[in-house]
């Protein structure tokens, strides 16, 4: 699946690195961003197919990022990943394709990403 590009947005570097490593083993092409603002910049360059999005982040949080993304006309599917108990509700808030609640394991992550993957 080298053709599937994923952007991982999370303010925790260790989470980003761990998630990226899992996705890379599965063959995805992964890029990272530490917050919503950096993610918006990366979108324009990389045009990811899926966005893995933490919700509570500094500078620009998940809600702000999702709103701006849609405003710019991108329909990229989003997978919410959060440690909050409200993961499902927050995913609904921004019309995410899927969500994965921290702490998640390998299989949880991959199946969430697979479910959000646009039909090729």
């Amino acid at each position: 699946m080298p053709d599937i590009r994923i952007l991982v947005v999370d303010d925790e570097p260790d989470i980003r690195a761990t998630v990226s490593a899992m996705l890379e083993i599965e063959g995805y092409d992964v890029a990272e961003a530490p917050d919503g603002a950096a993610a918006l910049a990366a979108i324009e360059q990389r045009r990811p197919d899926i966005i893995l999005l933490d919700m509570r982040m500094p500078i620009l949080d998940g809600w702000g990022f999702a709103a701006e993304l849609r405003r710019r006309g991108h329909q990229t599917p989003i997978v919410v990943m959060t440690a909050a108990r409200d993961a499902a509700r927050w995913a609904g808030d921004i019309a995410a394709a899927a969500f994965v609640a921290k702490p998640f394991g390998y299989d949880d992550l991959i199946s969430a990403v697979e479910s959000a993957r646009p039909p090729s």
Partner: peptide, 17 residues
Amino acid sequence: AHDLRTPLTVVLGQAEL
């Protein structure tokens, strides 16, 4: 619970990797 989940995600994820 929130604060415990983040490090737990990394530990679990790295171990599974």
